[in-house]
Design a protein around this nucleic acid. Structure first.
Length: 585
RNA sequence: GGUCCUGUGGUGCAGUUUGGAGUGCACGCCGCCCUGUCAAGGCGGAGGUCGCGGGUUCAAAUCCCGUCAGGACCGCCA
């Protein structure tokens, strides 16, 4: 049907007879001559039509699909367009066929500068097939494809075997809400879509696969965010007879290969940071290390303070260099934000040569004021921001979140997520995140994560103090993924289950098949998974996962294109032994 | 479950704070003119339940209440 891609035409094609197929990107009808920019998957080329010979040239409209035949020639002197890769040539058309007419598009698809204002996202999703014609979206999908290929190749090169695991399975203990699929053969029972292939990959280790990987879709029925989708895609991997170091090395190779395939530059630095340090210095377990404004723990300084908002609480602060001239309404907005994040408030102090200018300065003693300046390294002209709370984690995360937002606002944090790329491993996560309402420890990762060997003995005495052999990979404040060394000892596994309140009966019912498998010779193993969507989002410089997913859902979980989710026939429900409850009032 | 932002011709915006005729800008669309354009240009034109419902008022895009949709965030979750 065609001989060349329009976007490929170069001076070397001059004299060739070509046939191009594509969409009408633009038409410039001069009456006596008509220029058409024809767009295909590789780019644009200008074709020239003579209406005397081809009267239908006047009929052509934007986004019609056409096929043209003609010969390539150099553009006449003075008419070369250096903005276009194909701008030195044009095609003189002698045959033009309309393959498909098109109605005017529901919204413009050019990404050229000057077109301020993003098209409403619901409209984009309703007409996603149009939206995906935009160069930016095309680039994102192609970027994602290159990324996935490079990651896959890197895993193959390292001896990993691609094994597909079921999508209709049983709930895995990942802690999120499952998507359920009713069984027809056994009414009243349900499959679950996997939150991850966790148990299967461990079984593959027992099976002796040694090194497994898969680009796997995972489903979690939790509320959506810019960086969270119901269904997301991970590079999932597991290996036997290895520990954390080996797994991290495997993943570094895969991530580096993926990044290199997209950016052309292979990252070499994968620094480490303990979870404790990340929380202390960045107020987050996924630190953006591309800029300063690090948190400083000032708790000891104010332990016995006269200022009741600080005394005996965790007090964390950060220094905003040159921030003393921040207008009051900004400070108030930041304070409101701190409250919205769950903090009690935000204390600000303008650092002056001899004093601190702040509503609370009068409550702080001379040594406290000096200690604060020294602790933060504050210079005159800086602004100090402090958060205090009984809950250390809360104080840190509130200021950590403000650090990101204020850092972006004042220009300290790079605007684009795509560069520079600061990868960092966060290690030594706590084994348990908190106590549940029933007073049971809640696993930070999942219940198969191995405790840090130094903390195994005291597990029952101080569960919240126990570290794990879990590690996260973070880039620019985005959690790419996480992994851990797994428990391969039945006795230790039972201890963990007992600790988190899963009795022998329940553990046998829910994942007895894994525990059983462990009776038959289980190798020590460890693994990891990282989000392909997330990495693609970062590398594309996008703020939302939806912009690297071809057909994403809205925040309320709907797909405006297909109309999903939708009611089904009573017949379908009957077959499944289901009855829809009346909608709640 | 909660907080906040947004909703005005096909698209993106202004207009809403301080109620007074659907007023405006850019793009797109339709017609005519035009032989070297590059988002062509010129002239003319069409196109609106101001998301929806209710209330206040002599009068509502504008104020109030409710609701729907989209988005950001908290909870939740990776």
């Amino acid at each position: 049907m065609r001989t060349h891609y329009a976007g490929d035409l170069r001076p070397g094609h001059v004299g060739s007879r070509v046939t191009l197929c594509g969409w009408v990107e633009a038409r410039r009808d001069h009456g006596g001559v008509v220029f058409i920019d024809i767009r295909d998957a590789r780019g644009l080329a200008q074709v020239v039509l003579d209406p005397e010979q081809l009267p239908e040239a006047h009929r052509l409209r934007s986004e019609w699909v056409i096929r043209v035949e003609g010969s390539v020639r150099e553009r006449p002197a003075g008419t070369v367009n250096l903005e276009l890769p194909t701008g030195e040539v044009e095609v003189v058309v002698d045959t033009c066929e309309v393959l498909s007419e098109a109605e005017p598009l529901p919204f413009p698809i050019d990404d050229r500068p000057g077109g301020e204002g993003a098209v409403d996202e619901a409209l984009r999703l309703r007409y996603r097939f149009v939206d995906l014609r935009r160069p930016r979206m095309q680039a994102n999908l192609r970027l994602r494809s290159r990324l996935a290929l490079a990651v896959r190749q890197a895993m193959e090169d390292q001896g990993f075997v691609d094994v597909q695991t079921p999508t209709l399975t049983r709930s895995t203990p990942e802690g999120a809400r499952d998507f359920l699929v009713p069984s027809r053969k056994q009414p009243g029972t349900f499959y679950a879509l996997p939150q991850s292939p966790q148990l299967f990959k461990q079984l593959l280790m027992v099976a002796g696969l040694d090194r497994y990987y898969q680009i796997a879709t995972c489903w979690r029925d939790e509320d959506l965010r810019a960086d969270r989708a119901y269904e997301f895609v991970q590079l999932d991997a597991e290996a036997s007879f290895v520990g954390a170091e080996e797994v991290m090395a495997f993943i570094e190779v895969a991530v580096a290969a993926g990044i290199e395939a997209v950016t052309g530059t292979r990252p070499t630095e994968f620094p480490r940071m303990t979870w404790h340090d990340a929380m202390d210095r960045y107020g987050s377990d996924k630190p953006d290390t591309r800029f300063g404004m690090a948190l400083v723990n000032l708790t000891d300084l104010f332990a016995a303070s006269e200022f009741r908002a600080f005394a005996g609480k965790t007090v964390v602060g950060l220094r905003l260099p040159g921030g003393a001239d921040t207008p009051r309404n900004r400070l108030d907005a930041w304070t409101d934000r701190a409250k919205a994040l769950g903090g009690g408030g935000l204390v600000w102090m303008r650092v002056e040569p001899e004093a601190l200018d702040s509503p609370v300065a009068k409550f702080l003693s001379e040594p406290e004021q000096k200690g604060l300046r020294d602790g933060l390294g504050a210079e005159p002209g800086d602004l100090a921001l402090l958060v205090a709370d009984d809950d250390q984690r809360l104080a840190q995360t509130v200021l950590g979140a403000l650090r990101l937002e204020i850092g972006a606002e004042v220009g300290a944090r790079p605007t684009s997520l795509a560069e520079p790329l600061n990868l960092v491993w966060v290690t030594e996560f706590p084994l348990f995140e908190k106590l549940s309402d029933e007073g049971r420890p809640v696993p930070s990762h999942h219940p198969f994560t191995a405790p840090h060997p130094d903390d195994v003995l005291g597990l029952e005495d101080d569960p919240l103090g126990a570290r794990s052999l879990a590690y996260d990979l973070v880039v620019n404040g985005v959690e790419l993924g996480s992994g851990s060394v797994r428990i391969h000892d039945r006795e230790l596994q039972q201890r963990i289950f007992a600790l988190i309140g899963i009795g022998a009966e329940e553990s046998q019912a829910r994942f007895g098949f894994l525990l059983d498998a462990f009776r038959y010779g289980v190798p020590p193993h460890a693994g990891f998974a990282f989000g392909i969507d997330r990495l693609a989002m970062v590398l594309a410089g996008e703020q939302s996962l939806r912009d690297v997913i071809a057909f994403p859902k809205t925040q309320s979980g709907a797909d405006p294109l297909t109309g999903a989710p939708a009611p089904v026939d009573d017949r379908q429900l009957r077959d499944l032994g289901l009855r829809a409850a009346p909608p709640p009032d």
